[in-house]
């Protein structure tokens, strides 16, 4: 439904989006994930034909955004970061206005407006001025505006930003209920949102694609590496973490070892090991035999949050390539 290939956007002196590629199948919900300023909004703006790409191509519903923007625009519903509402209009007039812009007319228009009101639960504020609505209602009117012409693709830029927790849940449920009828791309920097609502994730950072995969696969992949957290203390005096690191790294099956926290006497280490290899016993024995105290040893659960942090903070170009390759495979 959406195919993005080597999409690039350059501004004077800066590259906001750098050769990202991904695709979205019909009826899916895709989470577009990245820290603030990663290029999410720019990418979405290119998909909605608001901004022309500097290089690369993107097609939505089978139409190229540069070649046939008109056809693309007919088939998308777009909710920008702040809902594009006119404060001096009433809800229902506003939805009628948007419906007309999208090419609806007559009875069909009235039907769709009523449907969108119903679906986004804004029917009770139909005749209120948009400027007087609360943030939650405005957001829902924004969503109603996006679905009023029954578009094949919905592009939602941070649909839950600025809402209170209850409204966030309502909005998420609403978005989930819209999937199936529509193909949805939603951007967010909130991870639980992706875990809860999306089937697939596209992670970008500093304009580059970091990973694109299904939520389940990403979690699986995270479990491929087992992580153990250990708190180790010196029996007396100050603990120098260096020898501990070296000692732990010598154990077979252990991958990366890093210091998470350190204090005078003790330090917390994170030890990665290959999945399936039980190295915890070896670790404990090594610590005790070397004359240190073992205060804690537990398996660290790798949540999507950690994957995300890892991918976005330490992603070198090589890793990026791996991530892309894996997802394509």
């Amino acid at each position: 439904m959406i195919i993005v290939k080597d999409l690039t956007k350059k501004y004077a002196g800066a590259t906001a989006v750098d050769r990202i590629s991904f695709s979205v199948a019909k009826g899916q919900i895709v989470g577009f994930l990245g820290p603030n300023g990663a290029g999410k909004t720019t990418t979405m703006r290119m998909l909605t034909c608001f901004l022309p790409p500097s290089a690369g191509a993107a097609s939505v519903a089978g139409f190229d955004v540069l070649e046939q923007p008109f056809e693309v625009k007919k088939r998308i519903g777009y909710l920008p970061e702040s809902p594009p509402i006119y404060p001096e209009m009433e809800t229902v007039d506003y939805l009628r206005f948007v419906g007309k812009l999208k090419g609806l007319a007559g009875a069909e228009l009235e039907k769709r407006v009523a449907y969108a009101c119903e679906r986004c639960s804004v029917a009770d504020v139909k005749t209120k001025l948009l400027g007087k609505l609360s943030k939650g209602y405005r957001q829902r009117v924004g969503l109603a505006q996006a679905i009023v012409h029954n578009p094949e693709v919905l592009i939602l830029d941070e649909p839950t930003a600025g809402l209170d927790p209850k409204q966030i849940n309502e909005t998420r449920d609403l978005i989930k209920s819209l999937a199936g009828d529509h193909t949805i791309i939603l951007s967010t920097h909130i991870l639980p949102e992706v875990e809860q609502t999306c089937e697939q994730v596209v992670i970008i950072n500093k304009g580059k694609l970091v990973a694109t995969d299904s939520v389940r696969n990403l979690q699986e992949r995270a479990r491929g590496v087992e992580s153990v957290v250990m708190e180790i203390a010196a029996r007396s005096g100050v603990l120098d973490p260096e020898p501990v690191l070296r000692r732990l790294e010598r154990i077979s099956g252990v991958g990366r070892v890093s210091v998470r926290q350190r204090a005078e006497q003790a330090a917390v280490f994170e030890v990665e090991s290959q999945k399936g290899q039980l190295v915890r016993g070896d670790l404990a024995r090594a610590v005790v035999e070397s004359g240190w105290d073992l205060h804690e040893l537990r398996a660290a659960a790798m949540s999507l949050e950690e994957i995300f942090l890892e991918l976005t903070s330490s992603a070198t170009p090589a890793e990026t390539k791996d991530a892309t390759k894996e997802s394509q495979a």
């Binding site: 625009k73 007919k74 998308i76 702040s82 594009p84 006119y86 948007v98």
Partner: peptide, 13 residues
């Protein structure tokens, strides 16, 4: 200023 221009530009007009 209000961002509603995005609505107009992303509509088939």
């Amino acid at each position: 200023r209000s961002g509603t221009i995005e609505l107009l530009i992303t509509s088939p007009l």
